[in-house]
């Protein structure tokens, strides 16, 4: 019997199994265990959450492999880690660690301002950020098996996540309404491969699972993104920068499952303690906007 490993179906399939779930940023084993106990479907292992990367500045790189391994050994759920945009050697290192998914992430300082990683060359699946459908389909063409709308990481402000999700889903609906000849022109304008544009038009959805990320801080934020049409949520700084991480993490997990049930969202939102302090994004200087990294 031939066993074929690391096929497209297994790569995109793991993301399908994560749907309806919450992926949480964690910086040590203790946080990883809290995330798993709260019901996270996966953890993102990193040295600093985006809010601290933003505050401390400097070049943000892949995390220490020792830290990633310790986190991997502390939980039974999938473990993801971030590589810099275009830094294919960081990706090779993460693949060698035997984790489950790589996030080629704009939260880290890009290593290449022209080329993203050729993700088809890897056995491990990748998730990439997107602000619009052209960017989303370019990443899929490069081999991304999962997408996330970027939002603005480390701000605790959901406005950019909403903007990017509305943009992507609005563009999906516009493509669905187009005739065949209009799709050729749309592919050219979106700078995306025609076959992927056609797939979206025919199926009315992206070719891979699409989560929301960047600024989700409350159960209502998570349910808002789910109602807008994403398949699940990443919560970065929002949990462990809040007053009561376990309680907030559990509440966000429940709100993501029961996103269509306001009575449940109301119940789980009670007495969560202090949310992370948010940042007004229009007050951020242009060069500090992480979502503009990647193209």
């Amino acid at each position: 019997m031939a066993m074929e490993k690391s096929t497209w179906t297994t790569k995109a399939g793991l993301a399908q199994m994560l749907k309806g779930g919450v992926i949480m940023d964690v910086i040590d084993e203790e946080q990883a265990k809290i995330a798993e106990e709260a019901g996270a479907v996966a953890v993102m292992a990193l040295e600093r959450v985006p809010a601290d990367i933003r505050k401390q500045g400097g070049v943000a790189r892949m995390s220490d492999p020792e830290l990633i391994i310790r986190i991997k050994e502390s939980v039974t759920i999938p473990v993801m880690a971030k590589a810099r945009i275009g830094h294919f050697v960081e990706a090779q290192v993460l693949e060698a660690l035997g984790i489950d998914y790589i996030d080629e992430s704009e939260v880290l300082t890009p290593a290449d301002e022209e080329f993203h990683i050729d993700k088809h060359r890897f056995k491990i699946p990748f998730v990439n950020g997107c602000k619009n459908i052209g960017e989303a389909l370019r990443r899929v063409a490069e081999g991304a098996a999962m997408l996330r709308t970027k939002g603005e990481a480390g701000t605790g402000n959901v406005v950019e996540a909403v903007r990017h999700a509305r943009t992507v889903f609005g563009e999906v609906r516009r493509l669905q309404a187009m005739s065949e000849d209009e799709l050729y022109s749309a592919a050219k304008n979106l700078q995306a491969p025609y076959d992927l544009v056609k797939y979206v038009a025919q199926h009315g959805r992206l070719p891979v699972v699409n989560f929301a990320a960047g600024g989700i801080a409350t159960p209502s934020d998570a349910a808002l993104m789910m109602q807008l049409g994403v398949d699940g949520v990443f919560v970065g700084s929002g949990i462990f920068k809040s007053g009561d991480p376990m309680r907030r993490a559990k509440a966000i997990v429940q709100a993501t499952t029961h996103y269509q049930d306001p009575a449940i969202i109301a119940e789980v939102s009670k007495n969560l303690g202090e949310a992370m302090v948010g940042i007004e994004i229009s007050k951020l200087p242009q060069d500090q906007l992480l979502a503009n990294r990647g193209w």
Binding site: A2, T7, T10, L14, P78, G98, D100
Partner: peptide, 26 residues
């Protein structure tokens, strides 16, 4: 093992008259 060991294979299943294409993910 981890996601790197996820795989696809043809497997015989009792009561199914053809090899079934299976997808195993973690």
């Amino acid at each position: 093992g981890s996601q790197l060991d996820s795989f696809e294979a043809e497997v015989d299943v009792t009561d199914i008259d053809h090899p079934f294409h299976t997808v195993f993910i973690r």
